[in-house]
Amino acid sequence: MEPGAFEVAPGVFRIPLPLPNDGLRAVNVYAISDGDELVLIDSGWALDEARDRLEQALGGIGHGFESISRFLVTHVHRDHYTLGVTLRKTFGSRVSLGIGEQPSLEAILNGRVEGQLNDLVRWGAADIAERMREGMKRGGRQPDGYERPDEWIRGETEIRLNTRTLKALPTPGHTAGHLVYMDADSSLLFAGDHILPHITPSIGFELVRQELPLGDYLDSLRLVREHPDMRLLPAHGPVADSTHVRVDELLDHHRRRLDETERALGQDVATAAEVAGRMGWTRHNRKLSEMDTFNRMLAIGETSAHLDVLVRDGRLTGSTVDGVARYTA
């Protein structure tokens, strides 16, 4: 990951910031020149190294933290949200977040993880839920620098800056309150984790899970596809020329993944955890048992999200007994 600020469009700079122990390695923050000020799309993780890298990158384009008037955050995950919350304490920048993130943020602030633990039980992963519960008893659960934003963005919203106008577009799926920001005049889409160039974002693992997260995600992809094609500015990975091309690839991926999930279930009655154990994961087709606990949780949650769409579409049936969901052809 090369540090610095890289101009990807006139007055728009991509700033990669480090992530700890994460296969993604970096999160892209985008700095938009807005007269004498800067508006940042996402902020990075509240880590000393990320803060130093951001300060150096801004200095390279003639600015400091005091130039940041506003953080427009795509979603509540810590690598997008928490550094902005930290910086506003000193420099007074405003932090904006989509209203759909409010339930998950309140759960974070109040240490409420029961919903996520219950989800794991429902998916047939009670063993992982119990390990999580025991770990939290030993180490406690801290909100990790989270605070409430200055502004909740409600629905599709036009955001007028000094030099350009952005549109915040709700795109639930990866999280319930995920937003993308469109700059129609410059043909730019600040996509957050909604559309990533080389990987598919995780679906279905939140503190407050939506009823049908994959259904929401597919609808959000189609919504973006209805808008004119724009240059893709993702939160992870390189900038790409066409949003539409990648949206079509993601829709096709999930169509194939739904078919694979149905085949993995076969004629059995099985839980999401059991079905996930029969499938390959990542581009290397890894087994579920080869993955660490966190990525196993993501995989099982995503399998559940696919199974629930298959039930909605009439391709499977589902039932819940003693809090555990089971699926059958």
Rank of each mutant, 00 (worst) to 15 (best):
A46Q: 10
I32A: 00
L212C: 03
L117V: 11
R122K: 12
A57F: 09
E101G: 00
N118A: 13
E49D: 12
S96Q: 06
D241F: 03
N110E: 09
G155D: 08
R222K: 12
V12N: 02
V29W: 03
A184C: 05
L120R: 07
H178R: 01
A26N: 05
A57H: 00
L54K: 01
R133A: 12
I159A: 07
F13R: 01
S186A: 11
D34G: 04
A125E: 14
D127H: 12
G277R: 05
I68S: 07
Y146A: 10
M291H: 05
P18D: 14
R255E: 14
P213F: 06
V29A: 11
D150P: 10
R112M: 05
V239E: 09
E7C: 11
H236R: 07
K167H: 10
R94L: 10
P20I: 00
E147A: 15
Y81D: 02
R53S: 11
G155L: 04
A276C: 13
T243M: 14
E134S: 13
N295F: 14
L298M: 12
A26F: 08
D292Q: 10
K167Q: 11
R133V: 06
P172S: 04
A26G: 02
R133T: 10
G323P: 00
R25I: 13
G59L: 02
H75P: 00
M279A: 09
G64K: 04
S319K: 09
L19D: 00
W152A: 05
A46W: 00
E130R: 13
G64E: 07
L166K: 03
L316R: 00
K89N: 09
H174I: 02
R112F: 02
E262M: 10
T171E: 00
A125I: 01
T271A: 01
T243H: 11
D36R: 08
A31P: 05
N110L: 04
V39I: 13
Y30I: 10
A184K: 10
A26Q: 09
D52T: 11
S242T: 03
Q102N: 04
E151S: 06
R112E: 13
